[in-house]
Simulated assay, not measured.
Amino acid sequence: MTKPHYSWQSAEGNRVDHAIPQMKADGMRAIGTATAADYVLAWNLDASDRWLTRELRVQVESFDWSRSLTLQRHASGAWSSAVSATGSPDLPAANVLEDVPRPAVHGRLAGAPVAEVVVIKPV
């Protein structure tokens, strides 16, 4: 059986994204990629528990640097994160949990409309 597969290009035309969602009655999981001229990004979203984000993993690779981020929402509602980086990208420091509103129930990935389903679907 073929799973739905979605592809789109950024409005600026400098990035191409792909996503494969797995929809269920009480949530979803999805995997995806984004490719640009100087990086490749892969992500994995688990919102399979009553549409609440349980985990969001993102890995970005470039020629001279890489970054990864894992956000996890625990049963208590508390979030934890793991961040790693190599090289010296011209980007802000990766420090995510200081900016997470309390209580937060969803992880969002900018530029990935499939990941926005977890915010829209339960409403």
Rank of each mutant, 00 (worst) to 15 (best):
W79C: 03
Q9F: 01
E12N: 13
V123P: 04
S7M: 12
P92A: 10
W8E: 05
A85H: 08
V96D: 10
S84N: 14
L91M: 07
K24Q: 01
V96I: 13
A34M: 13
L71H: 00
P92M: 07
R57Q: 14
R50F: 08
I120T: 12
P103Q: 05
A37S: 13
A37P: 00
D38P: 04
Q22S: 06
D90Y: 00
G13K: 12
A75S: 07
L41I: 03
A36C: 13
V105L: 08
S68A: 14
Q59M: 08
S48H: 06
Y6A: 04
H5N: 11
R57P: 00
P122S: 11
T86G: 09
D49G: 01
V40Q: 14
V123L: 07
R15C: 11
S62K: 06
Y6R: 01
E116R: 04
Y6P: 00
A94L: 15
F63Y: 06
P122M: 11
A94W: 05
P122I: 14
V100F: 15
S88H: 10
A110C: 01
L69A: 07
E116T: 10
L69K: 02
S7L: 02
D46T: 01
V100N: 13
A30F: 02
A75K: 13
V114W: 07
M28G: 09
V118Y: 00
I31Q: 11
A11N: 09
M23H: 08
D26G: 09
L69W: 05
N95T: 02
K24H: 07
A42T: 13
A47K: 00
E12Y: 06
A11E: 12
A78V: 12
A115T: 15
A42W: 01
R29Y: 09
A25V: 07
D49T: 12
D64W: 06
A94R: 03
W43L: 05
T86L: 07
S68V: 04
D46C: 01
R102I: 05
A110E: 08
A115I: 14
D38H: 15
H18R: 08
L71M: 10
A30H: 10
F63Q: 06
Q72T: 15
S81W: 09
V83L: 01
S66A: 14
T35C: 08
M1A: 11
E12A: 15
H74W: 08
P122C: 10
I31C: 02
E61V: 13
V83P: 01
L41E: 15
P113S: 12
I31F: 06
D99P: 00
V117D: 00
P113T: 05
K121A: 07
A115F: 05
S84P: 03
M23Q: 12
P21F: 04
S66V: 02
V58K: 02
A25K: 06
S10P: 14
V83A: 10
E12G: 11
G77H: 04
P101G: 06
T86P: 05
H74V: 03
W65H: 08
K3P: 00
W79H: 08
D90E: 13
W51H: 09
R50L: 12
P89H: 11
L109I: 03
V58M: 05
T53G: 15
D49P: 00
A93M: 10
Q22N: 08
R102F: 09
R54C: 01
D49L: 05
L41V: 06
